[in-house]
């Protein structure tokens, strides 16, 4: 399991390749990449700033990853999240789940994203023509996370 919270850019393709490079027992890699959009809630977005809670953010992501590893037979799990200033088109988040077979990888990747959206302390502030604004949480994110409750 690898958790990285960083202000520097990353290459999602290289991350996917690294998911199976060290283990030929990996039969499936499912990855999710989230990007900064140039439009949200009716306004053009020129960029955003991602605030986090140093210490807790890494701890929260680690707990989510451990829970995923307990629930599915994963061979590798990576969670990478940007902080600081980002521009439209840049990757914000990468989640990669590697397993022998596809279903565990699909489910673990979706689970990690759903929990990250509702439990990991990150906050987006968008720069728009009308000034900067904090992005508000969505009820649909909580509904998505609730489906994993056992």
């Amino acid at each position: 399991m690898a958790i990285r919270v960083q202000s520097t850019a990353f290459d999602p393709g290289a991350e996917v390749n690294a998911m199976h490079a060290a283990n030929v027992g990996v039969g499936a890699v499912v990855s999710f990449v989230g990007y900064v959009r140039d439009f949200n809630d009716g306004l053009d977005v020129a960029g955003m700033f991602l605030e986090h809670y140093p210490g807790m953010t890494e701890k929260a992501l680690g707990k989510i990853a451990i829970e995923a590893e307990e629930r599915w037979p994963l061979l590798k799990l990576e969670v990478l999240h940007r902080i600081g200033a980002l521009e439209p088109g840049e990757p914000i988040v990468f989640v990669g789940a590697a397993s022998a077979h596809r279903q565990a990888a699909f489910d673990a990747c979706a689970f990690v994203m759903d929990y990250l959206k509702t439990r990991a302390p990150f906050w987006k502030k968008e720069n728009t023509r009308e000034g900067a604004r904090w992005v508000e949480g969505r009820d649909s994110d909580h509904a998505a996370a609730d489906r994993w409750k056992q």
Binding site: V93, T118, P121
Partner: peptide, 10 residues
């Protein structure tokens, strides 16, 4: 202790 609004990462 920390207080914060709904998280919006990802």
């Amino acid at each position: 202790v920390a207080f914060f609004p709904t998280v919006t990462g990802g």
